[in-house]
């Protein structure tokens, strides 16, 4: 599903170069549930931006779903983000003036899907995150956990190849975090490919594979045992804490 080869990302290459990513080689298969961990400044955000096609790598090649995206222009990248990637953000990023249903419909607006199809697909996705009773609530009328459920529904609505979740439980209490993570877990079981950035071990423990970044390099790549909720020592002793 995702293949990265020799990915480098350099910020401010002229004046004061910062090597955010250095020679990252990565392969994520369809159906993987990957947690990306690392201390701040380790390059995990940059990796997410490149992986999410919000940014392009300085060098290297990046294939997403069999398409090479590293050389695409901004319109093509917009189309990739629209159809192949579902974003879930730490701060939900719902539009405050729109109700839950319209927020979920938003990605389909840019995909040019007609009104009936939009609302039926949005309802389907909202149903999957258990929010059908809050369709016409605005984000300000919803709790953080409810907002994140709506955001997940929005990420699912164009049937993306991968779901990119950037600290999705960062603003939530532990009970709500568990609820949200169980949604990701069931999406994983349905066969979705998920890449999750987190610095919390117990959140990372839901994943089936953990990528640890340090100083812009992929430091370790650990496949977890099928039984979730056990936290490998590697991560426990890592810089994540």
């Amino acid at each position: 599903m995702i293949k990265m080869e020799h990915i480098h990302k350099v910020y401010r290459p002229q004046s004061n170069p910062v090597n955010a990513l250095q020679d990252v080689n990565l392969h994520i298969k369809t159906g993987d549930f990957v947690a990306v961990m690392g201390p701040s400044g380790s390059g995990k955000s940059t990796l997410m931006n490149v992986m999410g096609c919000l940014d392009t790598a300085s060098s290297g090649t990046y294939w997403l779903g069999g398409v090479e995206v590293s050389s695409m222009n901004s319109d093509q990248l917009a189309a990739i983000r629209n159809r192949k990637i579902g974003f879930v953000f730490q701060n939900y990023n719902l539009l405050p003036r729109m109700n839950a249903l319209l927020n979920v419909e938003l990605p389909m607006l840019y995909a040019g899907i007609d009104k009936e199809e939009r609302s039926s697909r949005a309802l389907d996705c909202i149903g999957r995150v258990g929010m059908l009773n809050r369709l016409h609530h605005r984000p300000s009328e919803l709790s953080g956990g409810q907002c994140q459920r709506i955001a997940i529904a929005r990420a699912l609505v164009n049937s993306p190849d991968i779901i990119l979740a950037d600290e999705p439980t960062g603003n939530l209490d532990s009970v709500t975090s568990e609820e949200i993570m169980s949604i990701f877990q069931s999406l994983h079981q349905e066969g979705h490919t998920i890449v999750l950035v987190t610095h919390e071990n117990d959140i990372a423990a839901y994943a089936s594979r953990i990528l640890l970044f340090r100083d812009g390099r992929l430091n370790s790549d650990e496949v977890l045992s099928p039984s979730p909720r056990t936290i490998p020592n590697l991560v426990m002793n890592g810089d994540a804490l």
């Binding site: 999410g52 189309a79 974003f87 995909a111």
Partner: peptide, 16 residues
């Protein structure tokens, strides 16, 4: 600004 960023992330092209 945030709304614009979000719309772009969700697939809005520059001309949208």
């Amino acid at each position: 600004t945030r709304e614009i960023g979000l719309r772009m992330a969700l697939g809005a092209r520059r001309r949208d």
